[in-house]
């Protein structure tokens, strides 16, 4: 899932300072699962900001709505009624949501409530970790199922580097060395030969470096 973290309340309050009526738009996708932008979080944020404005003597009218997903045009289309008459929409979706809203509603002022952080998963309830670097060319079959592109701080493909010690990365004692993990795992699976092979420089044109990406699937297109 995409993991996002809410911006500080004061920051969001600053962004809607001159608005009288605001739509708080949650998303029932990834941000619901990572507990930062679902229905509940949307209501908490709207209530907190409404209370803040009340205390400041500048009341704010809030509307809340949680879209099935903010990254699909059909669900963003369905928001046509709720965006009517608001001065801005605060989107609690990942960075995709505000952009879909902006594209669909040209006159609507959109505000991101989240800092979209990474593609990852939960480690335990309340803890999320980054797992995928979205590089566009997966190498997990070569690394025992541990991603060096994002879990190695240097994205090294022929690791571990000289900064690996006691299984930790040189950037911090609380950061595991991905290449140490890869080593342990390949050793266990008796596939260290994979690690001995020289890995060529990666084709970063498949990643963000190559410019904005697009995936097209003719077979599932309609019409």
């Amino acid at each position: 899932m995409i993991v996002a973290e809410q911006k500080p309340l004061a920051e969001i309050a600053g962004m809607i300072g001159d608005c009288r009526k605001v739509l708080f738009a949650g998303c029932a996708g990834c941000v619901t699962v990572c507990l930062s932008g679902g229905e509940k979080e949307t209501e908490v944020m709207a209530t907190a900001l409404r209370m803040k404005r009340q205390l400041e003597g500048n009341p704010l009218e809030t509307v809340t709505y949680t879209a099935t997903r903010q990254c699909d045009p059909e669900y963003v289309d369905a928001m046509a009624d709720v965006v009517k008459g608001v001065d801005a929409v605060v989107s609690l979706a990942c960075g995709v949501g505000p952009q879909y809203l902006a594209a669909r509603y040209p006159d609507l002022w959109v505000i991101p409530a989240q800092n979209t952080t990474f593609a990852g998963g939960s480690k335990e309830h309340g803890v999320w970790e980054e797992f995928c670097g979205l590089c566009g060319q997966c190498v997990l079959h070569l690394t025992g199922g541990i991603c060096p592109v994002i879990r190695c701080s240097k994205s090294i493909l022929n690791g571990p580097c000289g900064g690996s010690q006691y299984g930790k990365c040189e950037i911090g004692k609380d950061v595991e060395c991905a290449w140490h993990l890869i080593y342990e795992r390949l050793k266990r699976l008796d596939r260290l030969d994979l690690m001995r092979q020289y890995r060529e420089p990666k084709d970063w044109s498949k990643a963000r470096d190559g410019g904005p990406r697009k995936v097209t699937r003719e077979d599932v297109m309609i019409g």
Binding site: W204, G210, G211
Partner: peptide
Amino acid sequence: DHQKFGNHPTARN
């Protein structure tokens, strides 16, 4: 210029 136009289009930028 973006590296796409050069002789190392697979480079990171």
